[in-house]
Design a protein around this nucleic acid. Sequence first.
DNA 1: GAGTAAATCGTAGTCATTCCGAATTGGAAA
DNA 2: TTTCCAATTCGGAATGACTACGATTTACTC
Lengths: 139, 139
Amino acid sequence: MNFNLAMEKLKSEGFKRTPSREAILRLLEREDRYLSAGDVRKALAEKHPKMSQDTVYRNLSSFSEMKILEETELGGERKFRMHCDRHGHHHHFICMECGRTEKLDICPMEQVTLALPSFIIDDHKFEVYGQCPDCCTAG
Amino acid sequence: MNFNLAMEKLKSEGFKRTPSREAILRLLEREDRYLSAGDVRKALAEKHPKMSQDTVYRNLSSFSEMKILEETELGGERKFRMHCDRHGHHHHFICMECGRTEKLDICPMEQVTLALPSFIIDDHKFEVYGQCPDCCTAG
DNA sequence: GAGTAAATCGTAGTCATTCCGAATTGGAAA
DNA sequence: TTTCCAATTCGGAATGACTACGATTTACTC
């Protein structure tokens, strides 16, 4: 998803267009990796010094609920990135050095649903952690 | 892993046998599902009212480090369960109602390592969330 | 049984996140 | 364009999980 699509989605869901929301979404579009609320605040501190934490947290949660963002929980923090909606269902490799993500199309959920016939399955999480090629050589 | 094996492991790593550690490990053996530090404190409150949070957190972390426990992060909390060491590498289905877990032998990591030849892969997480058969009918 | 390092206690501190009342503002309606 | 109001934001306080730390107690060795 890109910035313009995200703004359309916001409008269609009855949300207002505010400078805070524009700045947060522009940042996430540019970074293309998982950022925490704190990361967002730091990155916007210069151009938006008065943006409160409440605003950052509330908007990130809203965006995540309406699927503009993808969300995960890592190292005791909630982290967010732009939703990859050009592709179907997918997961990510996450570089623990730089935060870079790599899309993975592999998902074993078909086998899981077959293996658990009497269970209701609502959700799942599949994430791979390590170092990306850039950080392998750098470290 | 069971209580006795866990106590052996503690001894072999030079840890002392204390009433706190016994109580925590007995509880986790009995429950056989993911518990948070808070869950542990509540469950032990009657018989061990003076056990401090420091003791609970420190011991859960130690046990996790030495692979007596398995650990995950769920709903903003660290959760722990006895390590399933009779079986090889595995993952879990986790019931969001009662916390019951079901072992999954399915894991797609071979395909992932093939798909990411120039990445260093250190770890991964694969969890499935939903309702177990008991909670399906109850809910 | 005495000595010592480990473990625990009680409490205070940290950090991410949420809550809340007051002030501001985007955007529809007049 | 101006008015208006619910949505949004701000600032700061509150919450909750987790960690840190000095003082005290305890498990284990000799």
